[in-house]
Design a protein around this nucleic acid. Structure first.
Length: 629
RNA sequence: CGGGGCGUAGCUCAGCUUGGCUAGAGCGCUUGGUUCGGGACCAAGAGGUCGCAGGUUCAAAUCCUGUCGCCCCGACCA
């Protein structure tokens, strides 16, 4: 390197070091109206583009096929290291930290206290609750040097229960709510959809402990409201829906779903807005007086047996016989667990419907789709089963009302490569089995079904952002977490758990709010609130840019200065891509008249602002942009 | 786990069918110059064990076998 160049470089570096440091957040706390004054998230931080890492890209990454994933990589938020494993780069990490800051504030409001539990935990605890086996291959497992089995925690019910068990022994110490924001590990069979389903992710998980169901209900209610506030402040849509609730039942579980096409969950909502539930949970209105229908006289009473070689699936049979799936009865054979009484359950739904296992389980106890070999051994010709199989096997029969209403159905013949037509319940299922049959809603709802309140249901895909859940005593009983009540009786603690995936909030924001030019951050989770873009970072523009940079930071605004020696077009394109809510453009024309240009990311046209009190003015604009909660 | 696709420069890709000279393009990067309000231009450069291993062949990015990794659909899954 030439000496002059070396000297110049050295002077530049020294110049950098002499630049005054940004003021400490504490110095500002009392003077400012901003949402991070509790010391979480950021508080008037400033950064120079040239000194941080924002690897933007014009190219769409080849391994990203959903919008949020493409944007996260193109805008330099994340980088994939392995399947479902990502680096978080400065911009993405800042957004994450802001979300975490909001969550901390809202947890604090409802008296939940933050803790930090280990990511590496002994497998033994997980064996005690049975989840070591329930989770199976989803667990990351490892051994320490003494050959002790450890796992990387996918969630922390066991650990927090163990903690509280050791430290709480009286009802006077309850209720208690603890939470953490921590790394989780799940060895997903198939990580997918970019940052939506990953193997290592951050989760805010809260756990509450109670001495009464009323107390649990109160905390559940508080947590529910805190979640509503969190999502609103983050600027993402999150619809609370009823979710599968396990043993406690009732209103014991809600998910917060952001409707969008990239989502993996399906939710059902009524058009009158009074009902929303996860598809797994969604109920429908069924007539009160369902009974076995009498086939009309023009339907032959005899089954018509038809050779359907190799056609064992619904589509194959429909295509082979040229019938619509609505004319068919789908008959599925389930095996009931020994604990629930054993035996087989035959579930019948209309051909175009799907059995909902959760509904079936609520009705008949724990079942799962029967093992092929076991079912065949018991006389079920898998692939060609019809409802009348119960005549031979005596299995329990469960019929969905829509299947029950059919009087000339096509269904399996109970022999290989044969189906039957003209099936009807009265003629072909023996009376003794009809009388024992249960008729109930056992299928997934479909678009157009009636909600329990009678309004029309619609279905949408969505991203699960959060989940609140009444756990009951499952973990406290398994791990012996008990307290002494006011009558000196030992009682298992009643628990609730509550999770939010901040990474998914980012995904949801990008999926639902971006435009063709890039990200459009909601102000509260934007990595920076203001982007200063001098057309050329020199002369008066540089002076004004630096001053504004410092003033905004001093006022508590997070601000990024694009000090790169790049052409304006490059800066504008990059600015749009990374989606900072407000952009201040400093150009010669405006500065000559004492004005700067304000371009909102959400607006196509800029507005001119005078230089006087610019930082204050911008601060107010930002405050106005924040969602009111 | 079943089905499909893909691994060549930091990124996006061509070359492979039909083996053959020093492995290419665009973007990005470096240096110099001209530019400078929506991803500039000129010139000169740096950068690749063609995922890895083995095999066939005089010769392999190219053909064969194995293996690892990644993406998509499904199964599974809070």
């Amino acid at each position: 390197m030439q000496f002059r160049a070396w000297l110049l470089r050295r002077q530049q570096l020294q110049g950098r070091r002499r630049r005054p440091a940004a003021p400490l957040p504490q110095a500002l706390a009392g003077t400012l109206q901003n949402p991070y004054k509790h010391g979480h998230g950021f508080n008037g931080e400033r950064m120079y583009w040239s000194r941080t890492l924002i690897p933007t890209s014009r190219e769409v990454p080849a391994d990203a096929d959903i919008l949020s994933h493409q944007l996260m990589v193109r805008a330099g938020l994340v980088r994939r290291l392995s399947a479902g494993i990502y680096d978080w780069l400065p911009l993405g990490w800042r957004a994450m930290q802001k979300i975490c800051g909001i969550m901390r504030q809202e947890m604090s409001r409802i008296d939940a206290e933050e803790i930090q539990m280990p990511a590496v935990v002994p497998a033994e605890l997980w064996k005690q609750t049975g989840r070591y086996f329930d989770y199976g291959p989803l667990l990351f497992k490892l051994k320490d040097r003494k050959d002790a089995e450890m796992i990387l925690g996918p969630t922390h019910e066991e650990i927090v229960t163990e903690l509280v068990k050791a430290s709480v022994s009286s009802h006077k110490q309850l209720p208690l709510t603890l939470y953490q924001i921590q790394q989780k590990f799940r060895d997903e069979a198939r990580p997918r959809s970019g940052l939506l389903r990953v193997r290592e992710f951050i989760m805010k998980d809260a756990y509450s402990f109670h001495s009464s169901l009323d107390s649990l209900g109160q905390t559940y209610h508080d947590m529910f409201n805190a979640y509503v506030r969190i999502f609103k402040r983050c600027g993402v849509t999150a619809i609370p829906v009823e979710a599968e609730s396990g043993p406690i039942g009732g209103d014991a579980s809600h998910e917060f779903i952001c409707p969008c096409a990239a989502g993996e969950d399906v939710i059902a909502r009524s058009e009158d807005g009074s009902y929303a539930a996860n598809l797994e949970r969604a109920d429908r209105q069924i007539p009160a007086d369902v009974s076995f229908p009498i086939a009309s006289a023009d339907v032959a009473a005899q089954l018509q047996r038809i050779h359907t070689p190799g056609a064992a699936s619904m589509e194959q049979v429909c295509a082979f016989l040229h019938v619509a799936s609505q004319q068919m009865i789908k008959t599925l054979v389930f095996a009931r667990s020994e604990a629930a009484g054993g035996g087989f359950v035959v579930a019948c739904v209309r051909g175009d419907h799907e059995v909902n296992e959760a509904k079936l389980r609520r009705l008949v106890g724990h079942v799962q789709l029967a093992d092929d070999a076991a079912a065949r051994a018991a006389g079920f010709v898998i692939g060609f089963v019809g409802p009348h199989v119960v005549n031979q096997t005596g299995a329990q029969l469960v019929i969905d009302p829509d299947a029950l209403a059919m009087t000339a159905a096509v269904t399996g013949a109970n022999e290989t490569d044969y189906h039957v037509t003209n099936f009807n319940w009265i003629n072909h299922v023996e009376a003794q089995h009809r009388s024992k049959a249960q008729v109930a809603d056992i299928r997934n709802v479909v678009e157009g079904d009636k909600s329990p309140g009678g309004s029309r249901l619609t279905l949408d895909k969505g991203i699960e952002l959060g989940h609140v859940f009444k756990l009951g005593t499952k973990y406290s009983k398994a791990l012996g977490a008990v307290y002494l009540d006011d009558k000196q009786q030992s009682q298992p603690m009643i628990m609730g758990c509550y999770g939010i995936g901040p990474g998914r909030i980012i995904v949801a924001a990008l999926e639902t709010l971006s435009d063709k030019d890039g990200i459009v951050w909601p102000v509260n989770i934007a990595p920076f609130e203001v982007l200063i873009t001098p057309i050329r970072y020199e002369g008066q523009a540089k002076t004004v840019a630096d001053e504004l940079h410092a003033q905004l930071a001093a006022r508590g605004v997070d601000v990024l200065l694009d000090d790169r020696d790049q052409r304006p077009g490059v800066k504008f394109k990059d600015g749009d891509l990374i989606g900072i809510p407000l952009r201040i453009v400093l150009g010669e024309k405006g500065l000559a008249t004492g004005q700067v240009e304000l371009k909102r990311r959400t607006s196509a046209t800029p507005e001119m602002l005078p230089l006087e009190n610019l930082a204050d003015r911008l601060g107010k604009i930002i405050d106005e942009m924040r969602p009111k909660v």
